[in-house]
């Protein structure tokens, strides 16, 4: 159980999150949607402790985790932009993270899945964006943590890798994990999401299932429903 309680965050004068209250209970894929700059990544980074909110608390399993670090043992995270130290090789990076986490891992299986074997000895700075994202995915899925956070996971991936990614997410969902995903790809949401959270101007505008969202906005498909939601609230 993860809950955000009255989270406020502003960068300088720009208010990004404006009193976010959100509870994520039970396993499943929770997708966070919202236009660019609506605060999706900030919310995720607050959960991870990378961004410090001005106000509010993050509670995991009825423990406040702000300012703590041990709880991150239970979290796997895929950052939005795959940026790594340029002069490490792929295998060195993976070894380093394994060394730091000291948990059992399945890196080899994932390396095979995403066909990364030819790149293992290459420097990360020389990899293409898509390959880097695959390395990113290996790092995010190699530990068996309870909570998985994926920030725009499909960015730069070829269709084959996207299929593998969805497969991976489905498997993890079956294990009862909490999977938190931000994305702009509606087909991905329609296919994968158990719950949709719509974030707009730093507030939660909708939380519920795909069907509920469509019913609420009288729309045939998700894209329309989101568009209606945006128009109603922006007009």
């Amino acid at each position: 159980m993860i809950s955000f309680q009255n989270i406020h965050k502003q960068y300088g004068r720009v208010k990004v999150l404006n009193g976010v209250d959100l509870g994520l209970s039970g396993g499943g894929v929770h997708t966070i949607l919202g236009p660019n700059g609506s605060g999706k990544t900030t919310l995720i980074k607050i959960l991870l402790g990378m961004v410090i909110p001005q106000k509010g608390e993050v509670v995991i399993d009825s423990k406040i985790v702000n300012g703590k670090w041990e709880y991150r043992n239970d979290i796997d995270y895929l950052p939005q932009i795959a940026r790594f130290p340029d002069n490490l090789s792929v295998s060195e990076l993976i070894k380093m993270i394994i060394h730091l986490r000291k948990k059992s891992n399945r890196s080899e299986e994932l390396i095979r899945l995403f066909k990364l074997e030819p790149f293992l000895d290459q420097k990360l700075g020389n990899l293409s964006g898509g390959t880097r994202q695959k390395v990113n995915l290996v790092l995010a899925f190699m530990f068996d943590s309870r909570i998985i956070i994926l920030d725009e996971p499909t960015t730069g991936l070829d269709p084959v890798a996207v299929v593998h990614l969805k497969e991976l997410i489905r498997k993890e969902r079956l294990k009862g994990k909490i999977i938190l995903v931000t994305t702009h790809i509606m087909s991905f949401v329609e296919e994968m999401a158990d719950q949709i959270i719509f974030l707009l101007e730093g507030k939660i505008y909708f939380k519920g299932t795909n069907e509920e969202l469509r019913a609420k906005n009288n729309s045939k498909n998700l894209e329309h429903a989101i568009a209606t939601l945006l128009e109603v609230n922006h007009a």
């Binding site: 991870l48 402790g49 990378m50 991150r72 995270y77 940026r83 130290p85 993270i97």
Partner: peptide, 16 residues
Amino acid sequence: NSREFTELLLAQPIKR
């Protein structure tokens, strides 16, 4: 230059 490395580490269970 090591900003990426730092960000990678910050998401791990390590104290700041």
